[in-house]
């Protein structure tokens, strides 16, 4: 699903955010991306979203070589990816419902189908009763769930999340994680950037560790391994 082949990213200032990263995430996988802040987690996700372009190396997502992706193909490419942001990126000039329906409108679904899917997505994240509310009136955890509903409403093949539990207490975090696992169970490939080691180890999923822009290891997340990494 995602294949990095010796990908490097150097920012104009000369700082190398990623160097020679090669990794493979198969279709239907659930993986975490972890490392200290500044290790290149966000850059890696941005490269997949094509919000940044790699300086060197090749990047394949869902069989598409991103180096060969024309600017005009970019919107269509992005439609197969759902992205959950730490700061939610919701629009506060419209209701929860109108936030979630946005990808459906953009993809040109007819109204009835859109409505059905928006309701299903909101139901999935437990916010069906808040569909008419402005997201500004919601708690941080609820806003995050609206963000997740928007990311999954058009059934993307790939779901990315950048610190989705960053501002949430452990209980809410676990709840959000369960949601991601549910989506993974129906075949969605999930990649989550997080530095919440406890949460990662509690899921027992694959963990990709970045240190100063380099891939140091990938392993099954168990508390022992994670603490080893910590000591390195």
């Amino acid at each position: 699903m995602i294949k990095f082949d010796a990908v490097s990213k150097r920012y104009p200032g000369g700082q190398e955010a990623l160097s020679q990263v090669s990794l493979h995430i198969p279709r239907g996988d659930f993986a975490f991306l972890t490392g200290h802040s500044g290790a290149g987690k966000t850059t890696l996700l941005k490269l997949i979203m094509q919000m940044e372009l790699p300086s060197r190396g090749q990047l394949l997502v869902n069989g598409q070589n991103l180096n060969k992706l024309a600017r005009s193909q970019l919107p269509i490419y992005r439609r197969q990816i759902g992205f959950v942001y730490q700061d939610h990126q919701l629009l506060f000039d419209r209701s929860v419902y109108d936030n979630v329906i946005l990808p459906m409108e953009i993809c040109g679904y007819d109204q009835r189908e859109s409505m059905r899917r928006v309701r299903a997505a909101l139901d999935r994240v437990g916010l069906l009763d808040k569909e008419r509310v402005n997201p500004i009136a919601l708690s941080s955890g609820e806003q995050q769930r609206v963000g997740i509903a928007r990311a999954v409403v058009n059934r993307p093949a790939l779901l990315l999340a950048d610190e989705p539990t960053g501002n949430l207490d452990p209980e809410l975090s676990a709840e959000i994680m369960r949601l991601f696992q549910d989506f993974n169970e129906v075949g969605v490939t999930v990649l989550i950037a997080s530095h919440d080691r406890e949460l990662i180890s509690s899921t027992g999923k694959r963990c990709i560790i970045l240190q100063q822009g380099r891939l140091t290891s990938t392993l099954r997340a168990h508390s022992n391994d994670i603490s080893e990494i910590k000591e390195q």
Partner: peptide
Amino acid sequence: RAEILVMKLVGATDGW
């Protein structure tokens, strides 16, 4: 601007 950014991130074309 914020709205346009979000729209482009969820796959809106320039035309849309």
